[in-house]
Design a protein around this nucleic acid. Structure first.
Length: 351
DNA sequence: AACACGGGGTG
DNA sequence: CACCCAGTGTT
């Protein structure tokens, strides 16, 4: 697709003017140093601005720079990320900090090509850091930009990702303005040219737009797969037995043990809750239990104070909160369930 | 190219 | 409830 110089200049001007007037006041825009751009961009991967702000502020207080982050333990890093999801991002950010402190004098590279070699930094994030933090003439294509381009140029649904990157590159203005240019494209996608509704009257480039707010066709998804999971709540005094998650999505987290009726005695259902995770709908049932034989299990007894410092999957954190917080109540735990609940031996996944 | 990865907000 | 989000890494 050819882009006329005149079109490019007019579009660029409008974006910059609009952005100067409408840029949201976000914490990582206050002092755009490379580290704050790195942290915010990692947090913003597949995650909305509104969800990120509080995490970002706490993060910067706790890990103000690469050196502080590199020194932190993984548990501390994961606890700070808990609830934000996609925990590989946190592990990657931590590794990136350690790698840069160890080998690059604690400095981020400024070229997208070098940034992309860092763990957790792909094509989008590399371009974002290069342009936003270092003012480089690097394009960005994220979900917002993709949608804006689809509408702006009335692109066919099957448009290849490479083509979108070519367009993004071709539209870049002089280096000095690239940060604002890229931010403006994403900000318009986020606040004006939204997935379901395009608020064209508010859009600074609506008269240059080929589709004027047409709907982007939605890709249908398969319905969630139902799963069941049963966990055990084992209490000794004021401590709860937790086990480390050694692999999988919750690697590095602590969690309730899976109910194991061979080594545990099932004392009855304590609580149940459902949650969704990517394409699964999980029904979690927690049973109160006692050890018959604890040998050969990795884990530890955790007090309530320690509980607040260890990283836990949100569903397990919730279940624990529900079961162990009994304010203004003499008993620390819910009364035994009347009937002996039937044990579900192991979580089952039906495909 | 398809899939896994988390949790919460929005209509 | 369905859909989606400032993507990346693995298979």
């Amino acid at each position: 697709m050819r882009i006329e110089r005149k079109f490019r200049q007019e579009l660029g001007r409008r974006l910059l003017v609009w952005y100067r007037a409408h840029a949201a006041d976000l914490p990582w825009r206050r002092s755009p140093n490379p580290y704050s751009v790195l942290v915010s961009e990692l947090m913003l991967q597949q995650t909305r601005v509104a969800a990120v702000v509080a995490y970002y502020n706490r993060w910067m207080e706790r890990f103000p720079d690469l050196a502080a982050l590199a020194k932190a333990s993984e548990a501390e890093v994961l606890r700070s990320w808990e609830g934000l999801g996609y925990y590989a991002r946190a592990r990657n950010l931590h590794r990136t900090a350690q790698l840069l402190v160890a080998e690059q004098g604690g400095r981020l590279p400024s070229r997208a090509e070098d940034l992309e070699r860092l763990p957790g930094v792909g094509r989008y994030t590399a371009g974002a850091i290069a342009s936003l933090a270092f003012g480089k003439r690097s394009p960005v294509v994220d979900g917002n930009v993709r949608r804006v381009f689809h509408r702006l140029f009335a692109l066919p649904e099957e448009t290849r990702a490479d083509h979108l990157w070519e367009i993004a590159e071709a539209l870049l203005p002089v280096p000095r303005d690239c940060a604002a240019h890229n931010s403006a494209l994403m900000e318009i996608g986020r606040t004006v040219c939204m997935p379901r509704t395009a608020d064209c009257p508010r859009c600074p480039v609506s008269d240059l737009c080929r589709s004027r707010g047409g709907r982007i066709s939605l890709t249908r998804k398969r319905s969630p797969t139902r799963c069941e999971e049963s966990a055990a709540l084992i209490v000794q005094g004021d401590r709860t037995w937790l086990e480390p998650s050694l692999q999988g999505r919750y690697r590095g987290f602590w969690r309730l043990p899976m109910l194991d009726t061979v080594r545990m005695t099932n004392l009855g259902e304590a609580c149940r809750l459902s949650y969704s995770i990517t394409r699964y709908r999980v029904h979690l049932v927690v049973f109160r239990a006692e050890w018959r034989e604890k040998e050969s299990r990795e884990g530890r007894w955790v007090s309530r104070e320690e509980l607040s410092e260890l990283p836990l999957p949100i569903p397990h954190r919730r279940a624990l909160d529900r079961m162990t917080s009994r304010p203004a109540s003499s008993s620390a735990f819910p009364a035994p369930h009347a009937r002996q609940a039937e044990a579900v031996a192991f979580p089952t996944v039906r495909k």
